[in-house]
Design a binder for these strands. Structure first.
Length: 275
DNA sequence: GATCAGGTAAAGT
DNA sequence: ACTTTACCTGAT
């Protein structure tokens, strides 16, 4: 157990922010999160957080995962004081941070997300994890199994039939192809490593050239899987927002290099704001 | 029973 | 180059 005070972090909001699909709310309180092969339970009370791991693990993994080195006050302060809509969005989403999730997991997750709704995305990802992910039994509890996101090898090995019954629909072939590309069968490719080294523009182009990855998904992977916070994914919600509040275009130049963070707040505001 | 959902590939102008 | 259309499928 490790207790710490953190500002600008709201787990409930992050869980509903659309950037992650498997932060699981626990029956009593708190969330369970898996990342990079690690599992943790987190309980939040205001700005006090209780992590179920040791201090060492918090600092080596979760501090980075929750992007705690970024000062979101700076970002809020940089917003155009004339831009009432964006100010409201930033206030509504206070506590949302861009998680540093696993690249491979984000690639598959956002392929699943295309032309799809959130509850079905969740179900598909969870079913995929249960079928191919390693099973963890936190604290030796055999009744509360939790699965890691599966490896590319595991998915590639199962073939197209192995993806049946997960509600993936026509996306199954995209997933299989990328699983093969990222599996140890193509170890010499080191494609994921290449992506990680690349700058935003290069990574975007690499992703876009893949079967099943278009502009929107490529940008989501850049933003959530590579932490290129300048990426600005335009989905149907953001498109509506731009049309309504920014008919002359969103001021990307003003927010160059981190517009994706603002995108995330606008998205959150649209889905969770009072309107 | 349509229509929609955090789009993309492929075909058609 | 720009504009349609088909596509899996659970939810509403």
């Amino acid at each position: 157990m490790f207790e710490i005070q953190i500002r600008d972090l709201d787990l409930d909001k992050i869980a509903r922010s659309g950037q992650c699909f498997r932060m699981k709310p626990l029956d009593q309180e708190g969330y369970e999160v898996t990342a990079r092969g690690n599992y943790v339970k987190i309980v939040q009370r205001g700005d006090e957080f209780l992590f179920s791991c040791r201090e060492e693990e918090f600092y080596s993994i979760w501090k980075d995962y929750f992007d705690l080195d970024t000062d979101y006050d700076d970002i809020r302060r940089s917003v155009d004081p004339q831009d009432a809509y964006l100010l409201a969005a930033m206030e509504c989403g206070r506590g949302v941070r861009i998680l540093k999730q696993d690249l491979w997991e984000m690639i598959i997750t956002f392929i699943v997300s295309q032309n799809n709704n959130i509850s079905r995305i969740r179900n598909s990802i969870e079913a995929l994890c249960e079928r191919y992910g390693s099973c963890l039994h936190p604290e030796g509890m055999t009744d509360t199994a939790c699965y890691l996101f599966p490896s590319a090898d595991a998915i590639a090995k199962g073939g197209l039939e192995g993806l049946n019954g997960l509600g993936l629909g026509y996306r199954d072939k995209y997933i299989l192809e990328l699983a093969r590309k990222c599996s140890s069968q193509y170890l010499e490719l080191q494609w994921l490593e290449e992506l990680k080294q690349a700058d935003y523009e290069t990574a975007y182009k690499l992703l876009l050239s893949e079967y099943g990855i278009g502009k929107k998904v490529a940008d989501c992977i850049c933003l959530f899987g590579l932490h290129h916070v300048g990426a600005f994914p335009i989905d149907t919600h953001i498109r509506q927002i731009l049309k309504l509040y920014y008919p002359n275009g969103f001021p990307l130049e003003r927010y160059q290099g981190y517009a994706g963070i603002l995108q995330q707040y606008m998205f959150y505001y649209k889905l969770n704001g009072s309107k």
